[in-house]
Design a protein around this nucleic acid. Structure first.
Lengths: 134, 134
DNA sequence: TTAGATCGTATGCATATGCTTACTATTACG
DNA sequence: CGTAATAGTAAGCATATGCATACGATCTAA
């Protein structure tokens, strides 16, 4: 079967997904990085900025303006850790959790629509493979 | 099944593939864009710079330095089209075809190794889905 | 206690990206 | 013929990215 490189195809698909998500994020006034942060914090296992940066694959210095913005808008909290005063403990506010939930649901819905183009069995396998490879 | 957004997983996989390809490209002195160009020209259906830019999703102005470099190194030819002297017809040289083949083969081999982590059936379905979605 | 490591923050740099404008040569159309 | 459109080229701009450095506050370990 003649096909492109995986890299080329994955890159194209990535651009397509990005284009799909952009309007959703814009509609809720959330940047891509802000959403990634909300997503990372929603997992619950991440509490410090360094851990968050490592988890989402971002530079810790570049994360700061994003966190500043999210904090100003009341979507996250940044409290000093009483046990280690170097650290700021991050947490979603109720408002942040709600925004994340809404945006995430819309993105999931759009993703499902995209996957409609696949045979059900392929869809299953595709997602499974993606989970394994990513 | 709890999983990340498709966008997040595809982006991670993309970064992984990029990291995998980078050493291969570097070993042959080819930049990512140069390889994409060689790949686009290897298809055979593209002959002009504008068509190439459209095909690989690049800006036509940004393509120029890449083409200049490839031409200087004798990997492509850029001849004026006798039928339309605005146009430069692009073509791989034998040397360019060879470099492309070698790099592509190495990338394919590395990709196969990556896909080893999947069940054979999933691997098939994954590639099929990728072709459809990208 | 002292030296070294870590966390958050600020700043700068080199590079990459997408977009826009402008210009020349050339072609296509009214 | 003359105007509009197109191909290639050059240059600039705003933004984004990865990377490095520096600094104060604080913790850890010898």
């Amino acid at each position: 079967m003649a096909r492109d490189d995986l890299g080329a195809m994955v890159a194209r698909l990535g651009r397509r997904l990005l284009a799909m998500e952009q309007p959703i994020l814009a509609r809720h006034g959330v940047s891509m990085w802000a959403y990634v942060v909300l997503n990372g914090l929603a997992g619950g296992s991440v509490r410090t900025q360094a851990a968050l940066a490592a988890r989402i694959g971002a530079d810790k210095t570049r994360l700061i303006p994003v966190l500043d913005d999210l904090q100003e808008r009341g979507l996250i909290e940044r409290e000093p850790d009483p046990a280690d005063r170097r650290v700021r403990l991050l947490a979603l506010t109720d408002s942040g959790r709600e925004v994340h939930r809404v945006v995430r649901d819309e993105i999931r819905t759009a993703e499902e629509a995209l996957l409609e183009g696949l045979a059900p069995a392929d869809r299953e396998a595709f997602v499974r493979a993606l989970v394994t490879l990513s």
